[in-house]
């Protein structure tokens, strides 16, 4: 199977700040965007982003 990687999904509702909503696995950023759009469709979002999990720099780790 085509290798997949993790993407974090960020969404914002109208008049609300951006928040982390979940994640998807996908073989390309385009696929990740499609999966996120179809899976996290509980609101009519103002904004939605997918970010490769490996691109996130952890600044503070949980205790």
């Amino acid at each position: 199977m085509r290798p997949v990687e993790n993407y974090e999904v960020f969404t914002a509702r109208p008049d609300r700040p951006l928040r982390h909503n979940g994640n998807v696995r996908a073989a390309s950023p385009r696929d990740a965007a499609v999966y996120a759009h179809l899976m996290y469709d509980e609101w009519r979002w103002r904004e939605m982003f997918v970010v490769p999990s490996k691109a996130l720099v952890r600044v503070i780790r949980p205790e």
């Binding site: 199977m1 085509r2 996908a26 073989a27 390309s28 385009r30 696929d31 499609v34 179809l38």
Partner: peptide
């Protein structure tokens, strides 16, 4: 538009091997 992008991804996925 979303379905088309999904279908394209499926073609690339299945044809990978």
């Amino acid at each position: 538009r979303l379905t088309s992008a999904y279908a394209e991804g499926l073609v690339r996925q299945i044809a990978y091997n």
